[in-house]
Design a protein around this nucleic acid. Structure first.
Length: 332
DNA sequence: AACAGGAGCAACCGCACCACA
DNA sequence: ATGTGGTGCGGTTGCTCCTGT
């Protein structure tokens, strides 16, 4: 059913609020409460529509509003809640005292969304972007460009750092790609085409880091000997040996604390990322089913440290990789 | 110093939902 | 059961400020 806009009456002011208008609104609400927002403007002596008054009050003038930059904790909370709730800004705002839905929405759109995109995540699904193969050449070009600069005497530290970060980013995205393609292959057998693409990319990755004895392709293949990527029994878990995947120990915890190929995320009461002990603690309110696909290192063998919720941790990857990025920058 | 482009943010718009007559 | 008013919510716009050239 249609309804006319509340602000279509002619003569009502729009646009930025003046100090005088703010004071009128504050004074009226302090004395009488807001009551009916539609009736408020006349009672308060404001030439605005009720909706405009309500927005001004709830988003800006309310006394309990916290202003200023978002803290790291608030940022983590937003990311976490957004991975669960999506764009339910008002619901997210209820967990952040003093912050309005509008403020959170703006912060998301101007900061966090870009951050996720830069890190190769889809900001809506919080999963690695599926267009890795198309974005990787760009990353590699960046890396190669700085590699060329490496031979120039005028190279500064910034270029070196950029190169390192770019290579690391490419590695991260590459790992995500492996995780995702393997995870999405219901037959546990990634297509030959996918694997060939991956294999073709490896030399490019290594070219960005020729001086490193532990080149990335060597790291990747080290986890499963000389098996080609399209091996019949190739599983996601094959890629998750802590020695193989980049910084895997920082976000995938091996249940036995040994070098098996299966990563385990434990469930606990608090939602935290314990960087030191390499555990991601997932709230018990989130069930494994809700989190995503369960993966086993040996299908059908329940004793083989099964049920790592690898598919489901995608919701948490953003905060994980913020941590990793910080670590990277500190190292570089 | 002047200008252009981008980022950040307040405010607006329009749809959806709910309560009530 | 239906229509209407009030409010909430998410998406979008446009203004202001900042930064780089």
């Amino acid at each position: 059913m249609g309804r006319s806009p509340c602000c279509d009456e002619n003569g009502l002011k729009k646009g930025p609020w003046t100090l005088e208008e703010d004071q009128k609104l504050i004074q009226h609400i302090q004395q009488h409460g807001h009551g009916s927002w539609r009736a408020l403007p006349k009672l308060a002596g404001l030439n605005r529509c009720g909706k405009s008054c309500r927005l001004r009050w709830t988003n800006y003038l309310r006394p309990d509003i916290k202003r200023g930059k978002f803290s790291k904790e608030e940022e983590q909370t937003i990311l976490h809640l957004h991975s669960i709730l999506g764009n339910k800004w008002s619901a997210i705002a209820t967990h952040l005292p003093g912050r309005t839905d509008n403020e959170i929405k703006n912060f998301w759109n101007t900061h966090l969304k870009k951050k996720l995109i830069q890190m190769g995540f889809d900001p809506m699904t919080h999963q690695p972007r599926t267009d890795l193969v198309s974005t990787l050449p760009y990353l590699l070009a960046l890396a190669n460009m700085t590699d060329i600069m490496d031979h120039n005497q005028s190279l500064d530290e910034h270029a070196l750092r950029l190169q390192a970060e770019t290579v690391q980013l490419a590695k991260l995205q590459y790992l995500h790609f492996l995780l995702q393609t393997s995870n999405s292959s219901s037959s546990n057998n990634p297509s030959m085409k996918e694997n060939n693409q991956v294999i073709e990319l490896l030399p490019q990755l290594d070219n960005t880091n020729n001086n490193n004895p532990n080149s990335f392709s060597q790291e990747i293949f080290a986890g499963f000997g000389s098996q080609p990527l399209h091996h019949q029994n190739n599983m996601l878990s094959d890629f998750l040996d802590p020695q193989v995947s980049f910084n895997s120990q920082s976000f995938l915890h091996n249940e036995q604390g040994q070098g098996t190929n299966c990563a385990i995320i434990s469930q606990g009461d608090n939602t935290t990322f314990d960087h030191d002990s390499t555990n991601l603690i997932i709230p018990s309110s989130i069930t494994p089913n809700a989190m995503g696909t369960s993966i086993t290192s040996n299908p059908g063998d329940a004793s083989s440290s099964t049920s790592s919720y690898v598919g489901g941790i995608s919701s948490y990857w953003p905060e994980l990789f913020f941590e990793d990025t910080i670590k990277l920058q500190e190292l570089s």
